[in-house]
Design a protein around this nucleic acid. Sequence first.
RNA 1: GCUCGAGUGGCGGAAUUGGUAGACGCGCUGGAUUCAAAAUCCAGUUCCUUUGGAGUGUGGGUUCGAUUCCCACCUCGAGUACCA
Length: 980
Amino acid sequence: MGRLIETSYMNYDFKKIEEKWQGYWAKNQTFKVENNSDKEKFYVLDMFPYPSGAGLHVGHPLGYIASDIYTRYKRHKGFNVLHPMGYDSFGLPAEQYAIQTGQHPAITTETNINRYREQLDKIGFSFDWSREVRTSDPNYYKWTQWIFIQLFNSWYNKDSDKAMDIADLISVFEKQGNSTVNAVCDDDVESFTASQWNAFTDTEKQQVLLQYRLTYLAETEVNWCPGLGTVLANDEMVNGVSERGGHPVIRKKMTQWSMRISAYAQRLLDDLSMLDWPQPLKDSQTNWIGRSEGASVTFKVLPEGSGENISVFTTRPDTIFGVSFMTLAPEHELVAKITTLEQKEEVMKYVAATAKRSERDRMADVKTITGAFTGAYAEHPFTKKPIPIWIGDYVLAGYGTGAVMSVPCGDQRDHDFARHFNIPVPNIFEGVDVDEEAFADKENTVIANSDFLNGMPYKKAVKRAILELEQLGQGQGKINYRLRDAVFSRQRYWGEPFPVYYVNGMPQMIAVEHLPIVLPEVEKYLPTETGEPPLGNATHWAWDVEKSAVVSNKSIDNKTVFPLELNTMPGWAGSSYYFNRYMDPNNSDEVFSREAINYWQDVDLYIGGSEHATGHLLYSRFWQKFLFDKGIVPKPEFAKKLINQGMITGTSALAKRLQFEVNAQPFFVFVDAEVLDDYLNSSDKTNGENPLVSQLEEYGEFVVQDIHADVTMVDTSDNLDVEAFVKWQPEYADVNFITKADGSFKVAREVEKMSKSKFNVVSPDSICEEYGADSLRLYEMFLGPLEQSKPWNTAGISGVHSFLKKLWRLYHSGTEGSFAVTDGTPSADNLKTLHKTIKKVEEDIENFSFNTSVATFMICVNELATQKCNNREVLASLAVLIAPYAPHIAEELWNKLGHSDSIATAPFPKFESKHLVESSKEYPISFNGKMRFKLELPVDLSKEEIEKAVMADAKTQDQLQGRTPKKVIVVPGKIVNIVG
RNA sequence: GCUCGAGUGGCGGAAUUGGUAGACGCGCUGGAUUCAAAAUCCAGUUCCUUUGGAGUGUGGGUUCGAUUCCCACCUCGAGUACCA
């Protein structure tokens, strides 16, 4: 009896081992870190997960495993590593579920988080859970509200190029008005003097200040999604529909909170160069910011003296003499003013038609050219000739000034428009034909027919044109950005409430000491009958300035009790600074202490998906820069290095089904994939050996169909468990299965996105159950390069699993597999294998090439097993090497080697090159670049000696067959190449 | 359309500054062990017309030598979408 138990323990019992060490780590808080340490800091962060109801599949932990390996490695290297985890727990799915079921989103969220935690714990991550944060926790969103208030109380000073306190701005207004202020602000700010400012009422002053604040309330065109009942940010829609749910989105004017991210456009662009982030991600941020250099040009509307001006932005001021018409966006405010009587009807019709077309229609239909002539003319700044003013929906109201100077010879869209409406296409390029298409090449441009620009190349002409425009007072050089201010209001329940109440319609911030303003209870999570956001359903949602408390709506008197903001913040609010909050997550007095932020500084390694390129990662950089300006954080960028892990796709199992037609009725047969292939590829369809032949003779023509089978019912050799399949889908119970002679039935495989509907979802739990967390971790890494997308196929896991068993056996070479190590001096071979492994694994981890280090471990264990190595010193080093990858088995082996502490902080083995020194080298001998044979030669031979030895070799003469080589290339230590 | 990335055995993939293409694993084939199975171990496994030859998406170039560098093209994937 006792012997049985002993034996079972001697085998690699991963379940027992993993449970034991996960328990140990939790109990001993092995991975809890302090904010002060003599050790150097290192901060490894995973992107915040949203805890969805579906739980994790094997694709989700990929990045977490990689970051955990790096974290554990850095601990072995002597760093104090911050490696936290938490939840981005506000969000739409929980709210949609609440609308359907009435269940409070907080409850759904809690359930989902618990499930996530359970799944994460099983994989053996070394997170410091004492630092967990949740964005929906009032103790957390108190600080989200706090940052919002800081933004509200700030403006952007272009002179100092940073955010400054709004109080500074007010004192300037009081003394000098706003003419000397160089701020990022709304376009339509009117100028005022100090005395005018001082005469303003409070409300007027507030109104003016809103035009300067970094978060402001303004009527803006927003992306309204009726299907979701909320507005969406640009990055939350794809091709004119909502990213979540695919609902249509329309343009609508609404009063909304916005974030003046445009103030940071240039710095967001410039600082990309100091980030070690993937180039595609930086490129997409660069595109999103969309900087273009050019000029703004003012055209006077005729007749002279009408006082109206059209201002345009152009990147090609050098083509100003090619202007043959102007185009305004149909929404442009001048349209109504300048349209002549005769054209009024046509223009109004066109404006109404475009307003009706949804954004999506307009995008889907780029080819159709539409527009209308306003009847009005503008004056060319130089030639003074009249230019017709058109409207067209190819000009976007939201970009630039919503108006363009149209140069049909230099811009294809202008060209198309001109041709369509028979507008002249004057040519201003030397030696270029612009009849068929516009000439947009800047490099080979020589300007002609352009007065003072004649004969100039692009760059020179641009400079000159701007100079001339400036002298006329009708233009100047300008830089334009595509990046728009970000709408910050959402008409949702499950988000952070704004710390805002309204006095005379003007927003007021609630004092910081009264935060958090907690999300109120509501009976319904839908918008109110009057169309207000869900918070409009709350009965206690008013601010009492005397009590400094949220009180019943009934007491609103607009004297001491005021209505609170009904919108909530968007999903990205809470995730735009969480990386900083992790540094000191339980601090209730400050967002984080000085001590904490000064110690941890910023994230050293950030791992997550590339889908956040223009959302989370841009907003976070913006907030970080703002906090940096305010002296709250020490770094203008929050993450030095970022890695996008690739997606893991599923490998679907497809059972081949044939559909025959029998008596005008469909008739089905499942057939083994190889049998079918064999049949389809054979030229002789009457070959009697293929089981399909008999079927075909009977039924004739067929159509092949692919039926998804659940991947769990397929073994490593693609054989389907037919019994289980039929039990799972009883409708197939009566269908015949044509199997191979031995009764096996193979499915075909196809790589598709991992999804429930394709029955190819694999959960980490089932893998942990069957093979253990260490196998899962190794296999996820072994699959391929971290950043690449790659298919999951559970079949392959047996390789890493048997590797772990082999590793275990290396330490259990005693009788009946008992633990046995020896204390002697390791052999030269042992040391060579070990140090080769140390070198490679260390390089691999530093390069995030985790797949190759798993291969290295396999080679190492194979070699040590061949060497029958059971040396304590070598095996102890090996345990540490492998600990970041397979921490559970490493802990167990470390423990058996006699250590009472966790392996977590054991020093990483030191590589010593002396163990790798070789006395001879096996030279590949190539002829004309092709390796033909190998020759073992001493390593210290000179070039000449090598050549001599090679030429003297019989195999060389064999290859040459009497020819005399033209040349012999010898690269000592590498290769010999004989030419001729 | 534009921008970026990637194409290597049946499959996932390896090859660090140009220097032995296919490491490692899966799968497959054969064998050992076993009453049998699982597990384990050993050998083989790029292709072909095999005393040899060809071969890293295709075609060309640079080089003694190219998966690696250059040019053109093809295919797939990601991002973006009238941005003046």
